[in-house]
Amino acid sequence: MNTTERPGAIRTARCGCGGLAITVAGEPRSVYACACTECQRATGTAFSYRAVFVDDAVASVEGERRTWRRTGDAGRWVEQTFCPTCGTLLFMTGGGLPGAVSVSAGCFTDPDFAPPATLFRARRKHRWFDPGPRTRISD
Rank of each mutant, 00 (worst) to 15 (best):
I10Y: 06
L119Y: 01
G44R: 05
R69E: 15
V103I: 13
Q40S: 02
C39S: 02
E5A: 15
F120M: 09
T37C: 09
E62I: 10
Q40C: 00
D139A: 14
T93G: 08
G75R: 05
R50A: 14
P131L: 10
R65Q: 14
A25I: 11
A42D: 08
T88V: 07
P111Q: 10
T85R: 13
A13F: 01
K125P: 00
Y32M: 13
G16F: 14
T109P: 00
A122V: 02
V58L: 13
P98A: 07
F113H: 09
V78H: 07
G106V: 00
M92S: 12
M1W: 12
Q80I: 08
A13V: 04
A74T: 12
Y49W: 15
T135E: 09
D139I: 10
R66M: 11
G72S: 06
I10V: 15
F113M: 10
E79V: 03
I137V: 13
R70N: 08
A42L: 11
C39F: 00
Y32G: 09
D112Q: 13
F47G: 00
P131C: 07
S102N: 14
A100K: 10
R123L: 14
A100P: 01
P133L: 04
E38I: 03
D130L: 04
E62C: 06
E5W: 08
G132Y: 03
H126L: 12
V101S: 06
W77V: 04
I137S: 12
S138C: 11
C17K: 12
P116V: 01
